[in-house]
Design a protein around this nucleic acid. Sequence first.
DNA 1: CGGACGACCGTCCAATGTGATATGTCTATC
DNA 2: GATAGACATATCACATTGGACGGTCGTCCG
Lengths: 188, 188
Amino acid sequence: MESRPARRNLSNAAAPKLNPTAASLLGFLLEGPLTGWDIVAVVEASIGYFWNLTRSQVYRELRSLADAGYVEEGEAGPRDRRPYTITETGREAFMEWLRLDPGDDLIRMQGLLKFFFADNLDESIVRRWVMVQRSQVEKRLAYFRELLAHIQDEPTPFQIHTLRFGIAHEEAALEWLDSFPWSDAPRA
Amino acid sequence: MESRPARRNLSNAAAPKLNPTAASLLGFLLEGPLTGWDIVAVVEASIGYFWNLTRSQVYRELRSLADAGYVEEGEAGPRDRRPYTITETGREAFMEWLRLDPGDDLIRMQGLLKFFFADNLDESIVRRWVMVQRSQVEKRLAYFRELLAHIQDEPTPFQIHTLRFGIAHEEAALEWLDSFPWSDAPRA
DNA sequence: CGGACGACCGTCCAATGTGATATGTCTATC
DNA sequence: GATAGACATATCACATTGGACGGTCGTCCG
């Protein structure tokens, strides 16, 4: 048992810096092993709207986290399912990242951008656009409310409050969508 | 004058598809020529929080838009300033893009993500985090309100309403930040 | 039974986007 | 006439995306 393979993180110095995506993966592994596919599903079902992930990135990061010794790749299951387990080093790295001040938000709302330019568009198109947005917002709102009402898996108060953020956000969006002063708006 | 150099867009078919970034650049060029630098500044000062751009990307896309014949590069001015002017083809391409249903939002709120995991953190750190977020939100809110009050450049009703979205969003965020049920919250 | 359809799971790649760094220019100020 | 600071673009390594692809398993129906 000589010559242990672990080469990185010999000390607390020079740990390879965690990027936000990688860090978030560790966060979702805290409670137990998950496959890449599962992580994507879990994220989508919770803060997915506010924390975007893509499958390709998730699989890539999981592998690089494994290289860095932050997670361990498990045996391949049924459909090549490969669960990853967070290591102690991984936990530490995650906590370190968590304590840092959060980076800037990154937002790209293509719909809002189009609305910004909507002056160039027929009103009928804009109205359609508003309807589509509205139904999407309604859908997310209903989902969030549902989630809040029937919560499973012992969420922390912070997770619950995050959900409330989603609800607040969607409610504001809804109100906004309904408040556009169309030229043919009823007078009184 | 034989053998015109224009090779693309011989017909209405097969126009190289516009990516959202490129399309938004065209949008900002509608009102008149701008340099890459100017575009970044204009965007940052208006929907910047909801539509992210980076300088490198802007310069790259401007060149590729020029290659495609959607914009024309002007004479270099004072500090190598190179204004771009949208062409008629460019306008058409933009309008075509604008009419399409908007793509999905892309949102990555690192702060919210950290909050989601904040159960693992000392309360003092979370409190600090909330303060930082709060001041950022306040700042954006003040800026948006300021903009709404003293508007220049004849904004369209849609631009004004976009601004209102920003305000609604920040107000909701502020309310949310102030509503977290701390364990030591006053009883009545 | 068998086969076929749809959900599941991971891989790959070209296009897109980021952040840091480099280089140079003009303006103001002393 | 030096120097600081805003202005303006370029470029490179790297991160990230989205969609196409290729397999695997479960289940439902003829």
